[in-house]
Design a protein around this nucleic acid. Structure first.
Lengths: 125, 125
DNA sequence: TGTAACAAATTAGCCTTGCTAAAGATTCCA
DNA sequence: TGGAATCTTTAGCAAGGCTAATTTGTTACA
């Protein structure tokens, strides 16, 4: 929690919020996903995800399309601007972390990588 | 972020929120602290911390006292009820994590412990 | 085939907890 | 002693969780 507050301090005004960026990241790397699936991935309720997607659509970073096979579902895709901002933001955020990471030993970086894997397994249970 | 959302799902209704519990934890283990110091420890602004402390005081888990050496400062201390709930909540939360941790190897647990140390250093810079 | 149950998204409204700006207190120092 | 600095507090805003209820579409079965 404290690390994410610290990272938030590094965010510029024009950037997307944590949830928005994380959600856009999913559809950027996994391809188009439904609201329900995104909610599941972000461990958030469907209404919460719906609002996040609204923000992304309003900002021009994502689009909603009806699912061809099931009219209840909505497919969320990243626009070109969305893909672009994911890459740019990642690059900019990495800059902050990269400075810190540069001060770590390779062994320490490896420890963080392993911890990430373990934590992901814990949350996915 | 996703892990903390997952952990939030394990919280019962009567329990304190994440920020409240974390703040109470500081004064429980570090002893009485000022609002400003708590804000710094939690990486939050003073007004935000002030509100968190209000909640704790209203709930009977903490008390405000004027600093004897500097009238501007306010010392926040844990009440007996506060100390008690920190211990109880920790025990209950640990139960959830403990089940998951039991499934880890000693080496994996060690990796998480090391990662914590490294991350703490990163946030404190 | 018509209808009832179910499923997915959405809307509405609440709460917590960040924030900034500004207002009190109190202290420090020239 | 008066003004700047420091610490807390108040007020008000925004993001982003949540639940409950509504809408729309699908599926199952009598």
């Amino acid at each position: 929690m404290r690390l994410s507050r610290r990272l938030r301090q590094e965010r510029t005004e024009t950037e997307l919020s944590g949830s928005q960026f994380s959600t856009l990241g999913w559809i950027s790397t996994e391809g188009p996903l439904t609201i329900g699936r995104l909610a599941e991935l972000e461990r958030v309720t469907a209404p919460s995800m719906n609002r996040t997607v609204n923000c992304l659509v309003d900002a021009g970073y994502a689009t909603r399309t009806a699912s061809p096979d099931d009219g209840r579902k909505v497919i969320v895709s990243a626009t070109e601007a969305g893909e672009t901002i994911v890459l740019e933001t990642r690059r900019r955020r990495d800059a902050w972390l990269a400075k810190r990471f540069a001060a770590l030993t390779p062994a320490e970086r490896e420890t963080l990588a392993e911890a990430t894997t373990i934590l992901r397994r814990l949350t996915d249970q």
